[in-house]
Design a protein around this nucleic acid. Structure first.
Lengths: 227, 227
DNA sequence: GGGGCGCGTCAGGGTTGCGTCAAGGACGCC
DNA sequence: GGCGTCCTTGACGCAACCCTGACGCGCCCC
């Protein structure tokens, strides 16, 4: 869940923000002055900060600088000041966005989403899916198979077949499903393809290809990969 | 130098932006419609995009989506529309900021700086920008390749290709991904480019170009850089 | 006990993909 | 305006991959 830190000394603004954010499943912390804000930020590590520049105890720009000293968390500034200088100062101090009051809640939330989105890791869906067995190791992200310290060379079809099986580790994968995922939706009965390529996978990966321990045949149904 | 792509169909706005940006040592490209914009973005790989939503040939949001299909470059939207819905739509489509016309040049430049700043590599300190192999050393930050104490001269395309591969050291990079990252999103099947440039990289960097140890071909799938 | 079915294995041939070379053309620099 | 660099494009040989058919074996059902 995304954690938001709201910093504003006007209770009604804080209330409105908190209600709207919580309704959208954000986790919300609130602070009414700069000192509390800096303490909360350090303690809670929010994913995004909404900061009103007009605080009772310190200048909002100082809060920005205080945060930027140790974190790159997105900072969305709220302010009643429309002056261009104020905006430039806040942005150059390290703010990510600047919204003037009164603001539309929809717009603020959209800007918040934008700020959170671009803070996400660049890779996107980089799950390091690595599956190990006693004989070999499959790295799905790098498309690599290691066996006894040496890379095993797989052809595209072999790799594709292995990938489908490994993503369903422990589950039976029907022959029709295998054929359609690897060879395309118009295939479904050419089980001889499967036999040939399963044999090649076993030859390259199994310790004893004629008695496979990982690529298991379920006669009449399909194949199963076991670690 | 930071490269900016300005997209607007009003000549006076473009002129004002170009003059102000160039005065501040930005490198500027300009486009007057969406199609040109997408083409220029692919060809020039700007560091930040300034986009007017009101274009003659296509909806500005479509331009955003077209860019977001293959790049995370910061997009700063300009628009005459003040409506909240427009802002939300553009921001949710992938824009980073939204400025309504008329705008103050100081503010726009400050928002531009903020967008560029946060797009910079997160690490800040020396990350793994230097990759060493037995034969050569690649310095991603300095854009330099050293081999046996001497700089290796690489053309822009060669360098770009090398950069993508090195940033994915050990991982397989698909030919489609390579083509799109180096030549732009409209490429994906011109694998002969890859063959030519991989050969040039190997000739310049491998000890034995005909038996590459670092730039490895995975037939039918792509290429992999190994240290 | 015999036949049928499904699976594993092997080898050959068509096709695809890769590496290499060279020439044409665009672009920028002097 | 000439020159050089870089990108693009085509052709060609070769290796690897994918498909295909044939054969043997074990299991199940009749």
């Amino acid at each position: 869940m995304t954690r938001v830190l709201v910093i504003d000394d006007e209770p009604q603004i804080v209330r409105a923000l908190v209600i709207n954010l919580k309704a959208r499943k954000y986790e919300v912390d609130a602070a009414h002055d700069g000192a509390t804000a800096l303490r909360l930020a350090a303690a809670r590590h929010p994913d995004v900060v909404v900061l009103d520049l007009g605080l009772p105890d310190m200048d909002g720009v100082e809060v920005i600088k205080g945060l930027r000293g140790w974190t790159r968390v997105p900072i969305l500034v709220l302010s009643a000041r429309h002056s261009s200088d104020e905006k430039v100062e806040a942005l150059d101090a390290g703010a990510d966005d600047y919204v003037t009051k009164p603001f539309g809640m929809d717009e603020l939330l959209a800007r918040l989403r934008a700020a959170v989105r671009r803070a996400e890791p660049a890779g996107g869906e980089e799950e390091d899916v690595i599956v190990e067995t006693a004989e070999f190791t499959v790295d799905l992200a790098a498309k690599k198979v290691d066996r006894g310290g040496r890379d095993v060379r797989l052809t595209p079809t072999e790799w594709h077949l292995l990938e489908v099986l490994v993503r369903n580790t422990g589950r039976l994968v029907g022959q029709r499903q295998l054929l359609q995922e690897v060879w395309g939706p118009s295939y479904g009965t050419e089980t001889n393809y499967l036999r040939v390529y399963m044999a090649q996978l076993r030859r390259k990966l199994e310790a004893d290809p004629s008695h496979p321990k990982h690529f298991i045949t379920e006669p009449g149904m399909g194949y199963r990969f076991e670690r």
